[in-house]
Amino acid sequence: MHPVSPIRKIFQDVADRRQMFRMFDRHAQRPNRWDADASALYAGEWFEMSERDHDHMFEILPPFWMRGDMFAMREFLTGSITSIFFALTIDGEARHFHGYCDLSDKPSPGRMRAAIVDRESRPVKAMTRTERLDHIWSATHDNYRGYAGERWPEPSRGKRTIAVYGGNRSTQPKLLDDLTDEEISAKLPVHLRYLPDAIAA
């Protein structure tokens, strides 16, 4: 069960280099990794990075193409999905971002650029429930997240799971989408915990 695809922010802070490389393939544990097209799973994901890491990625290989404030990575992740790096000025501040776009859809980098500017220009800092869950998923170590397998009921298989505290110093896997508000709050860093809910665009 892969489909996802709308443009979405997957990490709420500026990613450091270790976090950046982890998020480049944050779905590596998905079932049937080599058997199914995961394009829709990655397309539309974006996060903020440092200028230093943006420039580092530019220097790794010659870009596939450059257009004003963005460039495309020459190596494709899956199918026609590749990394697009953005250097944007938002509210007078230079900021840098990474996103996955499907280059078979030629306007997709421009749409992602517009979505990032819109999301980051909002006057009140807020998060949707989906953004909270994606941040938790992105920030959690692989040992504590996974995908529901054959031991789960059929409708749950392939969905993302995360370890939650189950009492008696033990943890147990739970579907990420089923986390309660209290569990979400406990897994978020303090500076994100009390942000108001945002209305999904």
Rank of each mutant, 00 (worst) to 15 (best):
V4I: 04
S5N: 14
R8Y: 05
R8W: 00
R8V: 05
R17I: 06
R18W: 10
M20T: 13
M23I: 09
F24A: 08
D25P: 06
H27W: 14
P31T: 07
W34V: 02
S39P: 00
Y42T: 03
W46C: 03
F47S: 07
F47R: 05
R52P: 03
R52M: 03
R52W: 06
M57D: 00
M57T: 09
P62V: 06
M66C: 13
M66K: 15
R67Q: 15
R67Y: 01
G68M: 06
D69F: 07
M70G: 09
F71N: 05
L77F: 06
T78W: 08
G79F: 03
I84A: 03
F85V: 06
T89E: 15
D91N: 15
A94H: 13
G99D: 04
C101K: 07
D102K: 08
D102I: 00
S108C: 03
S108N: 09
G110I: 08
G110Q: 12
M112K: 01
R113D: 00
V117P: 00
R119H: 13
R119G: 01
P123T: 08
K125T: 12
M127L: 15
R129V: 12
E131T: 05
D134A: 10
Y144M: 07
G146L: 00
G146N: 10
Y147D: 00
Y147H: 08
Y147R: 01
W152Q: 07
E154V: 15
G158A: 12
K159P: 08
R160N: 07
T161S: 08
G166K: 09
G166T: 12
G167K: 12
N168P: 03
R169S: 15
T171F: 13
Q172G: 12
Q172L: 12
P173S: 13
K174Y: 07
L176K: 05
D177V: 11
D178Q: 14
D178I: 11
D178S: 15
E183T: 08
I184Q: 04
K187Q: 13
L188N: 09
P189W: 05
V190L: 14
A198C: 01
I199T: 13
